[in-house]
Design a protein around this nucleic acid. Structure first.
Lengths: 113, 113
DNA sequence: TCAATACTTAGCAACATGGCTAACCAACTT
DNA sequence: AAGTTGGTTAGCCATGTTGCTAAGTATTGA
């Protein structure tokens, strides 16, 4: 995928992967620990984990035979920022339209809000 | 896809579709107007538009032969809320458990993709 | 050393996605 | 009426994604 947002949103489009994020938000966990609540086969689950890691949402360290995963905030913050940005533009525009509408229909309303 | 977030994030994972959102954030537009800056064939583009509409991110009305599209804020706000929620949990945890972060970074990094 | 644990790799099948062209309908315009 | 514009439908193909199983590697524990 082209940029950071592509892969981030792509990663978050899957419920299994969002569940992993929700779990990791409250603290690091091993692969098998993360896998436990999910019905799918381990290799399948591992691939979801890989998607999250490739996207930079999750990092992991292997110690002995256990790989411990933890969350990385940056991509999450970036996506949130993009959404906030869009929303801001949209809301400013609405403000503008509201003002315009008010201007057009300038009646004798003199309410103070 | 299962829920609202699945389809929302799925929709936002494509740069063409995000570009459409960015365009629509600053005001409604017709299909061909939206299509103009994109190189792909119109039917291909229309399918992106359909994804956005199916997800509820975009609404449209057809008048004569022109279909005018506009943005719908609700799904955007919901997704932003989910991200904010995750981030909050994550940040609260960091506030309380700075020592844990230290412990993680201290581990022997003998793999790390 | 042998077995269990915790991943990891490889490869396959089914379906989804994103691109295309061709051909079509509907509504203006001339 | 005929042509142009704006959108739509249908179908094809290449690639990507998500699930599986089988089998392998590397630690750890007995």
């Amino acid at each position: 995928m082209a940029n950071q947002l592509d892969s981030f949103f792509g990663a978050m489009a899957d419920p299994t992967r969002r569940a992993v994020i929700e779990r990791l938000a409250s603290g690091p966990a091993s692969v098998s620990e993360l896998h436990k609540p999910h019905k799918m086969a381990l290799p399948t689950f591992m691939r979801h984990l890989k998607v999250l890691e490739d996207t930079g949402i999750v990092r992991s360290v292997k110690k002995g035979r256990v790989r411990t995963c933890h969350i990385e905030a940056a991509p999450l913050i970036e996506a949130q920022g993009w959404l906030a940005w869009q929303r801001e533009i949209w809301e400013n525009r609405l403000d503008g339209l509201a003002a315009l509408a008010h201007e057009i229909s300038q009646k004798d309303q003199n309410d103070g809000t």
